[in-house]
Amino acid sequence: MSGTTVTGTLKYGHVDAEGVRHAEFEMRAPTLGDMEWAVEQAPDGACPAKLARFIWSRALVRLGSLPPEKITPELLEGLHYAEYSVLDDAEKELAGKLAPASAS
């Protein structure tokens, strides 16, 4: 699993305080540790979308030129809701890359 990533581009991205748009991203496969961290950090009763946001904040290794430590659940919370499907599709693509090849 180490080294497996996907790249993509958000539809609208994040515009920082200097007006720079950050849209190109790279995501690694989320781990059980990412899920555990998300469950511990998210508020009690968090919906699946909120948990995904917390997980993605750790799985995104790059968002534009932002350093990884700036990619937080709070930053992702401010993205347009259409970005959810972009990030969800990236996570699904990663899962496909990790699946063993069929023995056909």
Rank of each mutant, 00 (worst) to 15 (best):
S65E: 15
V39K: 00
M35D: 06
W37N: 02
S65R: 12
V61P: 07
V6I: 08
R62T: 09
P68F: 01
L76Q: 03
L63W: 07
G78I: 10
A29Y: 01
A95R: 04
V20K: 05
P30Y: 00
P48S: 03
A23H: 04
W56C: 09
A38R: 00
D44V: 14
E93F: 07
K11W: 02
A99C: 14
A29C: 12
G3V: 12
S2E: 11
L51S: 03
R28L: 05
L10A: 02
T72P: 15
E26S: 11
W37I: 02
L98M: 09
E40S: 11
K11P: 14
E91H: 04
A17K: 02
K50W: 01
E83T: 14
T4C: 02
L32K: 07
P30G: 03
A90S: 08
T5L: 00
D88A: 07
A46D: 15
A17G: 05
S2Y: 03
C47N: 05
G78H: 02
T5M: 08
Q41V: 14
G13E: 03
A103M: 04
E93P: 11
D89N: 14
M1N: 10
P67C: 09
P48W: 00
A59Q: 12
G45W: 00
V39D: 01
L87S: 09
A49K: 13
A23T: 15
